[in-house]
Computed example of a mutant assay.
Amino acid sequence: MRPIARLEGVIVHLITSAGPLISLIAGILILLIPRLLNYIVAIYLIVIGCLGLFGGHVR
């Protein structure tokens, strides 16, 4: 069972380190294309809403 736990740890680390990278890219895109702000905020709210509803029980 050790390899599965190690793999899950790597996946969790990749997901947690992806947040700042996505934020940086979104910020740069908003500076370059201000109209993109509506779409970025909408996608963010949809993702956060889905995570709140399902709470990590999606498999």
Rank of each mutant, 00 (worst) to 15 (best):
P3I: 02
L31F: 15
G19S: 04
I22S: 11
I4M: 07
I25R: 14
V58L: 09
L53P: 04
L36S: 01
G55Q: 12
N38T: 04
M1Y: 11
G56N: 01
V12L: 10
G56M: 06
G19N: 03
R6P: 02
H13Q: 09
E8K: 14
L45H: 07
L7Q: 13
L21Y: 03
Y44C: 07
L14R: 05
L29I: 13
N38R: 01
P20N: 03
M1V: 12
I15R: 14
V41C: 01
G56L: 06
R35G: 03
I11E: 11
E8W: 07
R59V: 12
A26P: 02
L51F: 02
L32V: 15
G9R: 05
I33H: 11
T16D: 08
I48L: 09
L45V: 07
T16Y: 04
L29P: 09
G49A: 06
S23G: 08
I40K: 07
L36M: 08
I15M: 14
I4K: 12
G55F: 10
C50M: 08
L31S: 13
I15L: 14
V41E: 00
G52S: 06
V47C: 11
L24G: 08
V41G: 02
N38Q: 01
I40G: 05
V58H: 10
I40Y: 01
L7F: 09
L31M: 13
I25G: 08
A5T: 03
I30W: 14
P3W: 01
G49W: 02
C50Q: 07
P34H: 07
L51R: 03
C50F: 12
I40N: 04
A18E: 14
G49K: 00
A18F: 11
I48F: 05
I30R: 15
L31Q: 11
V58M: 09
I46H: 06
I30Q: 13
I48V: 15
R2G: 08
V12M: 11
G9W: 03
R6W: 06
E8H: 08
L37H: 00
Y39M: 03
L51C: 06
I25C: 12
G49L: 02
G27R: 05
A5H: 03
L51V: 06
G27Q: 02
L45Q: 08
G52M: 04
H57N: 15
G19A: 10
I43R: 07
L37D: 00
F54A: 11
R6K: 10
L14V: 09
H57W: 13
I43E: 11
Y44K: 12
P3G: 06
G56W: 00
F54H: 13
L31A: 12
I33Y: 14
L36G: 01
F54V: 15
G56A: 09
I28R: 14
V10N: 05
R59F: 14
A26K: 14
A42E: 01
L21S: 02
L51G: 10
I30H: 13
V47Y: 13
F54N: 07
L53Y: 04
Y44M: 11
I4F: 05
T16M: 06
L31C: 13
M1C: 05
G52I: 09
V41D: 02
L14H: 12
L21T: 02
L14K: 12
I40A: 00
G56Y: 06
P20A: 05
G19D: 03
L51E: 04
P34F: 04
